[in-house]
């Protein structure tokens, strides 16, 4: 049986995206791209590729420290809102409905 990827507009989807961003950040961190972030201060690197790596690292860093906590917290709040939501009687839709 195929395992479905949670849709982006579900708590699971938000958590999955937080995990993906975290994984990408840890990957670029482990690759040592932090070294190339001097572009933030306007110090260009003789190697142009280093500038690209530095910008990519900065993007994933800020996504990690700002985006990931918001996604994780958001997933928790979303689940809480669902829990608090008063259910309406009706038939249970089939699994794998629209995301």
């Amino acid at each position: 049986m195929k395992r479905r990827v949670p849709g982006p507009l579900t708590p699971a989807g938000l958590l999955l995206r937080a995990a993906l961003l975290s994984a990408l950040f840890f990957a670029v961190h482990a690759a040592g791209w932090r070294e190339y972030t001097s572009i933030i201060s306007g110090t260009t690197h003789p190697d142009r590729m280093a500038t690209v790596l530095g910008i990519a690292y900065a993007f994933f860093w800020f996504a990690f420290v700002l985006g990931v906590p918001v996604l994780v917290l958001g997933a928790g709040i979303y689940a809480l809102l669902l829990l608090l939501r008063r259910p309406r009687p009706g038939p249970l839709p089939a699994r794998g409905g629209p995301a």
Binding site: P6, T10, P11, A12, L15, G74, Y78, G90
Partner: peptide
């Protein structure tokens, strides 16, 4: 809860946006 079962697409947008 994690998959927001039984929640319409429009309501998912609303809840996800509000939660974020």
């Amino acid at each position: 809860l994690l998959e927001a079962r039984g929640v319409s697409r429009g309501r998912r947008w609303l809840l996800a946006g509000l939660s974020l």
